[in-house]
Computed example of a mutant assay.
Amino acid sequence: MQSPITLTVNGEAKALPAPASVADLLASIGLDGRKVAVERNLEIVPRSLWPVTPLESGDELEIVAFIGGG
């Protein structure tokens, strides 16, 4: 069994079981993927690539939620 992946998500440390993808991270946090944008190591990750974008220890992610209003 592999060691957990240690990430920084929105400035906070988070550990996930390895292997993990961006989609796995969002599922573990419980976020609706239709309402967020994800940046990994200063690069935007297109939604279509979330399931195949692997996460590695040391990655820094920013997740931004879209909020509607008027």
Score class of each variant (00 low, 15 high):
M1I: 04
M1A: 09
Q2H: 07
Q2V: 07
S3V: 10
P4S: 11
P4F: 05
I5W: 06
I5P: 05
T6Q: 13
T6V: 09
T6A: 08
T6P: 02
L7K: 08
T8H: 09
T8W: 06
V9K: 02
G11T: 09
A13I: 04
A13Y: 05
A13N: 10
A13R: 14
K14R: 15
K14C: 10
K14P: 00
K14D: 04
K14N: 02
K14G: 00
K14I: 12
A15C: 12
L16C: 04
L16F: 07
P17M: 06
P17Y: 05
A18N: 03
A18Y: 04
P19V: 06
A20V: 07
A20R: 08
A20G: 02
S21K: 00
S21A: 10
S21G: 01
S21Y: 02
A23E: 13
D24E: 08
D24Q: 06
D24F: 00
L26Y: 02
L26R: 06
L26A: 08
L26H: 03
I29F: 02
I29L: 15
L31S: 03
G33V: 10
R34Y: 02
R34V: 06
R34P: 00
K35R: 15
K35V: 06
V36H: 06
V36R: 10
A37C: 11
A37M: 14
A37V: 15
V38W: 03
V38E: 15
E39G: 02
E39N: 01
E39W: 05
R40S: 05
R40G: 01
R40M: 14
N41H: 03
L42H: 01
L42Q: 12
L42M: 08
E43I: 02
E43L: 12
E43Y: 01
V45Q: 02
V45G: 03
P46A: 11
P46T: 08
P46G: 04
S48R: 15
S48V: 12
W50M: 07
W50P: 00
P51D: 08
P51T: 08
P51H: 14
V52G: 00
T53F: 01
T53M: 03
P54N: 10
L55C: 11
L55M: 11
L55V: 08
E56F: 11
E56P: 08
S57F: 12
S57I: 12
S57R: 15
D59F: 09
D59I: 05
E60K: 14
E60G: 13
L61P: 04
L61R: 14
L61K: 06
E62H: 07
I63R: 10
I63D: 12
V64E: 14
V64L: 13
V64F: 04
V64Q: 06
V64H: 02
A65R: 15
A65P: 00
I67W: 03
I67M: 15
G70Y: 03
